[in-house]
Amino acid sequence: MQKFPCPFCGPRADREFRYGGDAGKLRPPRDCTDAEWARYRYQRANGKGVTHELWLHADGCGRWIEIERDTMTHEVFATRSLVP
């Protein structure tokens, strides 16, 4: 029942969004180690407190956005488009 401000559509109910994992992860190149690839693929920070996350505005504009929010208080600090 949270409210996320989509940078394209304005404030919207969370049921329109789909969670997409931690923001800021870079896809490692082919010659990375197994451990690096596993970290990219499978390891989640699951942070308590302030987190940066990717969300897809699936039932809205269809854009991927980054949301900075607090997983304890559910306060949303900032949202921005994934594409600059």
């Binding site: 896809r27 490692p28 190149p29 082919r30 990375c32 197994d34 690839w37 596993a38 693929r41």
Partner: peptide, 14 residues
């Protein structure tokens, strides 16, 4: 293939 594609690195894990 040497260029990047989705799932590429996963095809070479143990």
């Amino acid at each position: 293939r040497r260029d990047a594609f989705v799932g590429d690195r996963s095809l070479f894990t143990p």
